[in-house]
Simulated scan of single mutants.
Amino acid sequence: MTISGAVALGVLLIVLYRVVSTPRHVDGRAADHFVASSYGLPPREQLDSRRPGPPPPVYRTKERQAVADAAWEGDWETAERYVSAAGEDWDERWARLELLQHVAREDDAWLEAWHAAEPGNCDAATLRASLMVHRAWEVRGSGYAHEVLSSDMDRFRAMLPAAIEEAQRAALLDPANPGPWVVMITAARGAKYRRARFKPLWEGLVARAPHHYEGHWQALQYWCAKWYGSDRRMMRFARQAVRKAPPGSPLAGIYLHALNELTERHLVVAMPFTPLTRKTLKQVAASFEQVPPDDERLPALRHLLAHYMLQSMLYTAALEQFRLIGPWCGAQPWFKYEHAAIAFEIARATAVKRSRTRPVSNPPVYGMSR
């Protein structure tokens, strides 16, 4: 297998489900005579539902494949160098560990050889702990607690203590590295950690990496109502992420995940939006302007931003996000519908119609070279 598919699953996880009605504020008739190119948008025939955004540069794909191939051939040194090269860019370092986790799920002999050769290596220990957590979650599955067989739930919870212990040992190997703390935060909700036990883990993470994206995403899951928080706690946490997002980080996108969690939890296709919600969405958009355009997390987040701007009647702002997205429509929330490209087209047309945007006199010519 190639690693590009695994990367897409690991970094840009898409939850597929269908709904039977059209979202509020999205007019299905708006696309009937809609000519996208007249409004600075790629035409309908160029829409691509295979990806949320353009593929990564060829050199990056080749590098990842080379690391994966080397590992499967037993060369753990290449993996070690690949992770170490990220330095103290903790988000990038974690992304590289996630890649290696997908590699190890296919065959972890190289990882065990790495750990045996370098028992004091924090990255190897963190990767082992993370792999243990994900294997436990595979036993549990992704359903709500009442949907999981009691035998699977018992196995799941029995596997987590060893993973947490492994992460704790990893943390001692490199006290500055936040990676083990991300693993512990991920495992905490499955291990039924109450708030008093979770709090030190969160403090340990942010003391080392205050803006760690994956760490915030995992903490958001802890604070949602289906685990150990509530809608209010989750949204408060998400708004804090927007406020503290540093320039260049997509951390503000945590707020969009929180809105998505609300939508799914309450089984509705649209939520009531307040002035605070609209204000925060604008802050998220402003924060994204400072994120490097080649950040692979950004395209999927822009889809959510465009969707929730449309839902909150920020039509002109939503249209701008659609222009930045381009022809790509393989992302949430369009996969909620039977035909993602059609849902995406209707949303774009609605943004144009409701914003009362006039056609441009010289529409650009779009290609699919990216």
Rank of each mutant, 00 (worst) to 15 (best):
K353C: 01
P364Q: 06
D123P: 13
G10E: 08
V67M: 01
H307I: 00
E118I: 11
R302Q: 12
Y337S: 08
Q46I: 12
V133I: 14
M132K: 11
V15P: 02
Q321K: 10
A347I: 14
L127G: 04
S21W: 10
A163G: 07
D75I: 09
L262H: 14
A8Y: 12
V133D: 01
R157Y: 04
A196K: 14
Q218I: 01
N260R: 14
V103N: 01
H146K: 05
S150C: 00
I346C: 02
A95H: 05
V183N: 00
L267R: 15
S4C: 10
E92S: 11
V11S: 07
D75K: 03
I164T: 02
V19P: 12
R157A: 04
D48G: 02
I3M: 03
H307W: 14
E264L: 12
Y213N: 06
A124R: 03
P333I: 06
A145R: 15
D154L: 13
V360K: 12
V26M: 15
D294P: 03
H257G: 09
L301S: 08
T2F: 04
F322W: 05
H212K: 09
P292M: 00
E165L: 05
T277M: 09
M313H: 09
W334I: 08
V182S: 07
K353I: 03
P210M: 11
H216V: 02
D174H: 09
A170H: 04
R29F: 00
F156W: 09
E345F: 15
Y228K: 07
L160E: 03
T280Y: 09
W76Y: 15
E203Y: 08
R354Q: 12
L41P: 07
L205K: 11
H216A: 11
E165I: 14
Y213K: 08
P247I: 02
V284N: 01
R50E: 15
T277R: 04
G229V: 06
K192C: 10
R297S: 03
T280A: 06
D89A: 13
R24Y: 12
M1V: 14
A351I: 13
